[in-house]
């Protein structure tokens, strides 16, 4: 019976989130006590649903790009011809992570202008590290006997990569993507300081007009998204791991 509790809680969370996004006004009584009289309790400068979708789109694009680059880079540096670049690529990716996203935004705006672009750059750089490190770990820790068997059965290096190394690394790669997505979901909010359309808009509007309800609904939507996506990717990861016999 206990096994079902988390699933029920998650479905409940998803239902509440959808209900709130589709019809925010019906939640007004809940948030009303948080604001001064006359102030609006529900964000009224745009649709929460479209902001959420734009937020997700920004995160999706940035994560997709980060995944492609990070996985390709990890594959490259684990091949014999790319081994020399291992240290270099590691430090490059690490710089991407240590550089504060706010600083990236500040530097990117003069170069690419306001809007979604600087946010995508910041999220992309920030999301590289977890995916790169995880892919690298997975590719370098494959069971020795399996790799030996793959070579011994006459697979070419490319066949080994496609048929053995990548499928076996997949669960760990997905775990990296999961970390990256959650970081990006939260970080994307600051994109609104440079006029990107994200849920950060709601939070910033709340801070500017001293409206606690705005801050709360913006934060809660981002939080709920993060929890749900994290769980979803965890489930996918577990499924792949079971298939590859790792679990």
């Amino acid at each position: 019976m206990k096994v079902w509790v988390p699933t029920i809680l998650r479905s409940l969370l998803l239902l509440v989130l959808i209900a709130f996004l589709v019809s925010p006004d019906s939640f007004e009584p809940l948030l009303k006590p948080l604001v001064q009289p006359n102030a609006p309790a529900i964000y009224n400068q745009g649709s929460l649903l479209s902001l959420t979708l734009l937020h997700l789109r920004t995160v999706l694009i940035a994560t997709l790009a980060a995944t492609i680059i990070a996985v390709l880079l990890a594959i490259l540096v684990t091949r014999p011809f790319g081994a020399e670049f291992l240290a270099l690529s590691r430090s490059l990716v690490n710089i991407g992570q240590t550089f504060p996203p706010v600083a990236v935004l500040a530097l990117a705006v003069p170069a690419v202008g306001f809007g979604e672009k600087p946010t995508l750059i910041a999220l992309f750089l920030y999301g590289l590290l977890p995916i790169f490190e995880n892919t690298l770990t997975a590719l370098t820790n494959l069971p020795r006997s399996v790799m030996e068997a793959a070579r011994g059965s006459g697979m070419t290096p490319f066949q080994r990569l496609i048929q053995v190394e990548l499928p076996l690394s997949l669960p760990v790669v997905v775990a990296g993507i999961r970390l990256s997505v959650v970081i990006s979901l939260a970080t994307a909010t600051i994109g609104s300081t440079v006029a990107a359309k994200t849920l950060g808009e709601v939070i910033i509007a709340g801070l500017q007009s001293n409206n606690l309800a705005f801050v709360l609904q913006g934060g809660l939507i981002v939080g709920a998204l993060a929890v749900l996506i994290y769980d979803g990717l965890s489930a996918i990861e577990a499924m792949i791991a079971r298939r590859t016999g790792a679990a």
Partner: peptide
């Protein structure tokens, strides 16, 4: 080498089966 290895059977300790 890879063509040669397809013609020669190779079995190792700990079998090395592809888990996926």
């Amino acid at each position: 080498g890879y063509e040669l290895r397809r013609r020669i059977g190779y079995a190792i300790q700990g079998h090395g089966l592809f888990p996926h």
